[in-house]
Every structure is written in structure tokens, then in C-alpha cells.
Design a binder for these strands. Structure first.
Lengths: 217, 217, 217, 217
DNA sequence: GATGAATGAGCTTTCATTCAT
DNA sequence: GATGAATGAAAGCTCATTCAT
């Protein structure tokens, strides 16, 4: 019946299946699209209601304020954005030699995040834009990064430095350079020049190769 | 008398000295700060007027609409952002062996753009945020890039590929990787983690080094 | 419950009964009165709202712009102003000897329009004033006149010229003189000197008599 | 030097020659035209200033308020509108047999007022429109009518009733019917259907003829 | 649970008017 | 006398939110 499966998937980080009614999904879908296109502040709830095909009041039955609606979109997106690092089995996979090299690890991460961004682009746009203006979101982002992403990432980097693959640069710098490289590709690919004629496979390959040449001992 | 020299400098891409009155500069300064902090759409003209210490009507005497005020800030910022590539002597400097290596060239560009971003951060924030929502700005940006930045950048890259310094990667990819690396550093440094304890000299050095290791033959 | 029957009647040229809510009628009534008193341009929507006892936003829920509110009043008034000539049975009545003479016909028309103006005076004032400034209204008026009023009026005049009652003046002049005489009386009576001590019956009788003496063979 | 002679003539009801400066005339001319086209309330002083080619402040140097500017146009126009009846020699001319019949008298008045309206149409439009909204103008108009126009007109009507030319209708009705007929022609000719293909001579002749047929004993 | 009319605060913009130059 | 930058009140209109149905 529902056509909104992508929204539903994005929002269901846990197993809360069936939580969203048909109308609710329409509202969320309409909101993501309009927020991505015009920005949160420049989108009116009446526009969202019209696009979603519901009455204005219906929005406020589900979300007490317009901002709640934004957070309902942005918070799950934020968590999904760093999902691999939240997964319990993730670090174990690295250390259990599922990835023998940092390069293999990068390749896996990039492929995974590429697919994620491609699927959920509008929601990511919204997150990215509004991050700058809403301190709750920014703080949430920083907390997640500091508590979950950074420690695991650092262990992985140190692991491959000890294995001799990576040069003895400061761990923070390696992380920063890595994220910048991968995110830089995704930003260029999907945000800045989405209409450019990209050879995705090749460009990802080059991105990894150049980065690894730079980072290797 | 005036304290707004930084705005004045930013906006005077040509030699239009003395063009801005005291009140106009106060308006522009207040607008940049508020737009950077809360976003264009979420900032009201009455807030700007109050912060600038002028009557609301005064804003509209100088800028017919709120959007005109935005463009008065964003357009010069956009041009200044790519200013080195607009300068006539720029390419000549490269080919006249002012820069013997791509690495030297990168170092000069990064130092220059680092200073620029540091000085004009709020205006750059505004440009960066609103680029996504206003097609006129986006188109202007793309035109400037395609007509001025890209061709010169490509010549430089080819020059150093022919000299044997750079690997024979596609020119577009070299440009993309270069911009991503430098802009990625600046974004991390000034936008994402401005409060982190950065050792700017060292991190810029590492950024250049890793990138060059990646790009070298 | 409702006290606004006159507005409701005026606006319901067709059989759209029950179309207007209580608040909508209050808005229309307040608007007609204020437009008549101060003119459209000099009346603010906040004044209308206050007089109507509704919030200002409520006006704009029903009428997208202030001008739409004007047109909602003026357009029906315009049609009602020439209503007799729009009625399908009207011409037949004349030719079926319901009126044996032009004089009888004039008497009927004048009595009818006298009652109309007396009842809907404020709305007619508004129509009359704004006709001069809004080309849409003027064009609508001209179209209705040329397509509906003039042809029927001309047939009637020719009919009584052929019967020998009216002199062989140009039809256009007869129509012009007739309308000028009747409308002139109504304008003097209700617009220019409403406070004068009028003997309406006698003055209407004189108006008809003098006009007919002038037009008769 | 000046091109504004018509305005100057209209405004100089007395012999105040040379009273208006070049700029003042430009302001008045621009104001009349815009008030006639859009109405007093819908015309801004800045529009007038732009059209007149002067600074906004200059208007307020000559006329303390926008309303003063309106009155500076409307008051002279009002007096000129009934000018014949204000002229001292006017009644004497009638009784000294300069006009042997009411019909001759009407013909003279109509020709004179026709020329006046044709020359000063925009100012008359303004007077006519604003009369309805400004009680000072209305009162001024009524005072002039009651004190100057009506008594003289009444004497003339009685004169020709005594001479046996006019029927023994109430004097007020004769005056009303006369004014209505002449003003009705001028209104139709210049305000309602200025673009119609008028044969002015013939229509004026018919107007007089029909009216006289109606009023004659 | 869903609706949409109603609200009133707040938005961008315009305006008549002032005043230092 | 003329200017036009500056004003701030008020204009038309939009908006997030409420609530009776």
C-alpha cells in the first residue's frame, strides 16, 4: 500500500516497525523534500500539508511544533549517517581480519556510505544545512562523534599504524584526512556537481588510491 | 571613523573606494553576522536594523528587497572566494617559474585562502549556506568556475604533469582531489570544528604532504 | 441568526444560497461600508478586521489579497446594477405589450433601479468610485454593457420608434439621453444631495415627463 | 520657458501672475496626472517627485502635507468649474438680453463648459473623485453652490418662466434637470466613454433640443 | 484521528514627513 | 530654495499553532 518505504527505512533505526501511519509518512516525505529544496526556515507548514495531501492540523497532531518535525527527520538521519561506527560488530570485523588493510577498510566504508547518500540524499541535505543553525543538532552530532565514531576510528587507525601500513602521522590528522577525502568526494558527487558526468567507480578508486598513497608509510 | 573596514574590503572587489556610507556598512555588517548565525530565511529585517542601529526603513532605502541585501553580500564574497584565479597575472606567475612545483603552488594557494577564510569567515558561511537555496547564486558560481577557475586550473595541472611532477591521472580528478583536500581542511578547521585545538601550520603541511604523496608520479 | 441579509442578497446573483459564512458576511459588510466612506485605497485591512470583529488574518483566509476583497464586492454589484437587462424574460415582456409605451417602460425601469440604489447604496458608491481606477472593473463593465445592455436597449428603442412614439433620433443618442436622465436623477438624489428634502415620487414623475416630452415625435 | 501653461491658467483664478516657480508647476502637473490616473490615496509622494523630476523634500517645502497638495489642485478647479456663475457680469448679460432665450443661454453655457472640461480634464477627474471622500471639499462645493450658483441660476430660470418660455415646473427641478442633462453629456463624453466615436456638435445640439422640448411650456 | 477556520504575532515593504547639508 | 538620507509608523500579507467539529 505504502510508497514511502525509503523514508520508513531511514527513520527506523531500531526495530520500531509499523510505527508510522500512512499520513505520517506522507507528511515526513513532503517535509524532507521541501526542507531539502528550500530550507527549513523558508518552508511553511501549509506548503508541507498541501504537498502531503493532509490538513494543516494533521501535522500538529503528530508533531507538536514545526521544529519537532525537523528533528524527527534529522535525528535518525544523523545516526544513520554514522551507522557503521555505531554497529556493535563493526570494530570486531576490522580486528578479526575481515579487512586486512586500511585500504580495504576504506573501500568498504566508502562503498557503504556512497549507497547511503545516494538513497537518502534529501534527508542528508537537510541534516547538513540545518546542522549549522540548530545547536541541539550540532551538539547531538558532536556527542555521537566524540563518544562513538572517534574512539573506534582511532583504534582502527592505530591498529593499521602498528601493522605498519599507515605512516606515523598523528591519529587525529589521519582521521581528518580520511573523512575529508571520502566526504569530499560524496559532497562533490551529490551536492556540488550532481549533474556532472561522473564515472563513480573510477573516481572512488582514485580517491582511495590517492589517499592511501598519501597515508602509507 | 569607520570600524567596518573588513566588510568594506570584502565588498570592494574593484576600486570603488568610498562607495559605502557609514550606515550602509553597519547594515551590511549586521546582516552578515545574523545571516551567518541564523541563516538568511530565519533572520528578520527588523533584527538586522536593530543590530545595525538604524531604522528598518533605512535598509530598504539601500536595498530594495531583503534578497538584494543578501546578494550584495554574497556576490562579492563569491568572487573573492576564487579571486586568485581571477587575477590576470596569476597563471603567468605559475609559468614564469614563480612556482617550480605543484607543491609550491598548492602551498601558496592554501596559505592565501586560509588567510581569506579566516578574515571573512561569516561572509563565507553565508555564501556556503545560501548557495544551496538560491539558483541565481548557484548559477553565478558555476559560471565563474567553468569560465575562469577551471580552465586556468587545468592548464596548471597539465603543466606539472608534463614536467613529470604529477601522475597521469585525469585532469578533472586531480583538480577535484586538490580542491577537496584544501577546502576540506578549511571546512573542518573553520566550520565543523572551529573550537578544536588546531596546530594550523602543521595540519596544512600534512594536508599538502599527503595530497602530494598521492598525486605524485 | 444572521443580520447581513442585504449583503447576502446582493452577492447572490445566482442561486448560491448559504455560500457565505457568518464571518465572511461580517467582513464583506465592514469592507463595503468602509470602502464607501473612505475609498478602497484609504481603507486598511486592519480597520476592516476591527470593524468586522475578526482577526486580520481571517480576511486573507477568505480573500487572497485586498483587491480580491474589492472585486468580491464590486463584481456582483456591477451585474446587479444592470440586472434587468440581463434577465431573459425582460425583452419579451416589452414586446409582449407588457409595456405599451416607452414611457411605461421607463417608469418601470426607474422605479426598479430606484429601489435597487436605495437598498444597495454603499456597494454602488464603491463600484462607481473604483470603476475609474481599476481597469479590470472598467473592462468588465464595458463588456457587459456592449454585449447585454446595449443590444436589448437598442431593440426596445427601435421598437417604440417604429410604433411612432419616439422621434427619429439616432438610437445611440436616445439611449444616452435616457440613461443620463435616469442615472442623473439617481446620482443627484443619492450621491450628490442625499440630505436635500426630496419629493421622490414627484421628481421621478417630472424626470420621466420632461424626458418623454423631449424624445417624443 | 515653461510648458505648464494649462496648469498655471487653471490655478490662477485671480490675477496672481508669476506666483508659481518652474519646480512648483512641475510638481502640480505631475500630481494632477497621477491623482487622476490612480487616485489621491493610491499615489505616493515619491512617485510624484520622480515624475516631476524633483526631490521628495521639495514637495514638502511648497506644500506642508500631501493633502495640502491635493487642495492646491482641487480648490481652484472647483471654483473654475462653476466660474461662469461666479463672474460678476454673468447675470447682467442674461438680463440685458444678451441671451434672448433659455435655449440660447444653455447653448452658451454648454459650449463654455465643454471647452473647460476638455482643457482641464485631469483636474476635473481629481475633483470629482475626491469630492466623495474629503468633507472639506464637499462643504466648500456646497457653500459655493448654495451661495453663488443656485441663487443666480434660480433668478435666470424664473426670468424665462415669467417670459413664458419655460413651463411652470418647480425652479429646483428645472435647475436639477438642466444640470443633469448638461453634466450627463459631459460625463458620458469625457469620463465614461471617451473613446466612443462622438459627433460632439450634433450630440450637444440634441442634448439641448431634447431638454428644451421637455422644459418648454 | 483528522479537519480547516480562526487567530494574532510577526514578516517584508511602503509611506509621508523631517532635517542636516 | 533644493536635496535626499533617514525615520518609524503603518501597510498588506504570511505563518505556526489552536480548537471546535
Amino acid at each position: 500500500m505504502s510508497e514511502h518505504s525509503w523514508i520508513q527505512e531511514l527513520l527506523q533505526i531500531g526495530g520500531k516497525d509499523g510505527k508510522f501511519s500512512e499520513k505520517q509518512l506522507k507528511i515526513l516525505e513532503a517535509a524532507v523534500e521541501m526542507f531539502a529544496e528550500k530550507g527549513y526556515a523558508a518552508t511553511s507548514t501549509s506548503e508541507i500539508a498541501k504537498k502531503a495531501g493532509v490538513a494543516e492540523g494533521t501535522i500538529f497532531r503528530h508533531y507538536k511544533t514545526k521544529k519537532d518535525l525537523l528533528l524527527a527527520i534529522v535525528t535518525p538521519t544523523l545516526f544513520q549517517s554514522v551507522a557503521p561506527f555505531l554497529a556493535k560488530e563493526f570494530v570486531r570485523e576490522v580486528f578479526d581480519n575481515e579487512y586486512e588493510t586500511y585500504e580495504q577498510f576504506l573501500r568498504a566504508v566508502l562503498a557503504n556510505r556512497y549507497a547511503f547518500v545516494k538513497t537518502y540524499l534529501p534527508a542528508i541535505r537537510v541534516l547538513w544545512q540545518e546542522l549549522a543553525f540548530h545547536s541541539e543538532i550540532k551538539q547531538c552530532f558532536q556527542r555521537v562523534f566524540v563518544e562513538h565514531v572517534y574512539p573506534k576510528f582511532a583504534r582502527i587507525v592505530r591498529h593499521f599504524q602498528e601493522k605498519g601500513e599507515l605512516a606515523e602521522l598523528p591519529v587525529d590528522s589521519v582521521i581528518r584526512l580520511t573523512i575529508t577525502s571520502l566526504a569530499g568526494f560524496l559532497a562533490a558527487r551529490f551536492l556540488l556537481l550532481p549533474d556532472h558526468n561522473w564515472d563513480d567507480e573510477a573516481e572512488m578508486e582514485r580517491t582511495i588510491r590517492v589517499l592511501m598513497n598519501g597515508l602509507r608509510r
